[in-house]
Amino acid sequence: MKKTLLATAIAGALGVTAAAQAATVYDQDGTRLDINGRIAMGISGGGHQDVQPGEDKAGGTEFRDVYSRLGISMSHQIDPALRAFGRVEWRFKGDERDQSGGFAEVRHSFIGLESTQFGTVMAGNFDSFYSSRVMSPFDVYIDRGYEFAAGEGSDLQARGDSIGYITPNLQGFQAFLMAKHYTGNGLPETGEDRSSVLNVQGGVTYQWEGLRLAAGFVQDRDDNALSARGTRHRYDSRDLRGVDENIYGATVSYAFNDQFSARLGYETQDTNDSAIDAGGAVEDYSGFSTWGLGATYSLGQLAFNADVYRVRPDNEENRTAWALGSYYKLSNNFDVFAELHRADQGDITVSTADGVSVDENSDNLFWLLGARYHF
């Protein structure tokens, strides 16, 4: 198998550097404990701007943290065919003093069992299987440029109160199933249904030589329990609930050699016409379809990404987004990067002080320069 198949997401060049540089704190009698993480700093500017009167300024030049994190991984080999594992990972802001406790987010916290015969089961707070196993060939950018997974990426019906199962590798085939639970407990009584909600996602992958195929779905329910919890999983982020139509996606990636790989992807969600006919807002229940085409080229310590998307929201104008990235490893622990992203969101109409409506460009070119130290 061509080793750069895993590098479609720059994993070979950058993405797994943290794991590869993990410090083993304890490793004895089948029990292991590793600590790893990264400190990342950068300067960014541009992108979508909130230019309406009264809104916070956005899009200006900013010195910033670029997703620094600290993680602990643990495992125990119960027997030759069964392994228990766990991980907890925190995000912290590394660019400025933080007197609120230091850590900004518990990014991951899960436990699981991995069997060579029966597969892997895990529970807790982890990434969407749909995003990490189906759409992952396009998740190659450190910040912006990933237009799939309904704009939510690893948060899509995931990150907390979840359980998942992955089959063993069966001659290149693997299937997965995952469910996220939203409890109705603690919600105020309003006369509406406060039952618990279970959103399911699943799919299958196939890998042979340099070829990788993947397809899957995610339930995206419209339910009061999700809305009251403030769950953000809509395509355009304007509604806290789902469209109540499934999201479907598929990707094809191929590593031509150890330096060059290409990827093609498609994702879609139907418009919920019945909800709109019942009085629901069009912008809240509209679906979309998105095509993506991209490539990764790596040469030693240097790697490049290039991707273009055609995004077709049902209730808005079509747009063509693109992203570029360049990454250079000075050492196994230290890399520098540069990324560009144009979402092509077009102009928005704003009112001036004298009441005249004008169109202003709310979508400048986003850019990011930075460096990361992995440990």
Rank of each mutant, 00 (worst) to 15 (best):
A13V: 11
A175M: 10
Y146P: 03
S196K: 04
G249F: 07
I72T: 09
A175L: 05
D161V: 00
V308I: 15
Q117E: 13
A19W: 03
L293Y: 07
L70M: 13
I35N: 02
Y146E: 09
A18Y: 06
R234K: 09
G45V: 05
E192H: 10
F260M: 11
A7N: 15
A149Y: 05
F288C: 07
D314Y: 12
A262W: 07
M1T: 08
E317C: 01
Q52F: 05
R87L: 10
L299G: 09
G210H: 07
Y248P: 05
G71K: 11
A228W: 08
E89T: 13
G102W: 06
A11L: 04
G86Y: 05
L187S: 01
I142L: 13
D161N: 15
S132R: 12
A303V: 08
S115L: 08
N333P: 06
A275T: 00
R133H: 11
Y26R: 05
M178N: 13
S326E: 07
H48Q: 09
L368I: 01
G12K: 08
A323D: 00
N169E: 06
Y67S: 13
Y373I: 12
L226V: 15
V218P: 02
I35V: 15
L70Q: 04
Y141A: 04
V140L: 09
A84F: 10
G210Q: 03
S154R: 10
G42I: 04
G210T: 06
G249L: 00
N246G: 05
L187M: 11
K57F: 06
S331R: 10
L5W: 02
D127N: 14
L293N: 04
S298T: 15
W291M: 09
R212M: 11
E283C: 01
R234L: 05
Y328Q: 09
D307E: 11
G265I: 09
L324K: 13
L170T: 02
S195M: 05
T296K: 10
N315R: 07
N199P: 00
K329T: 10
G124E: 02
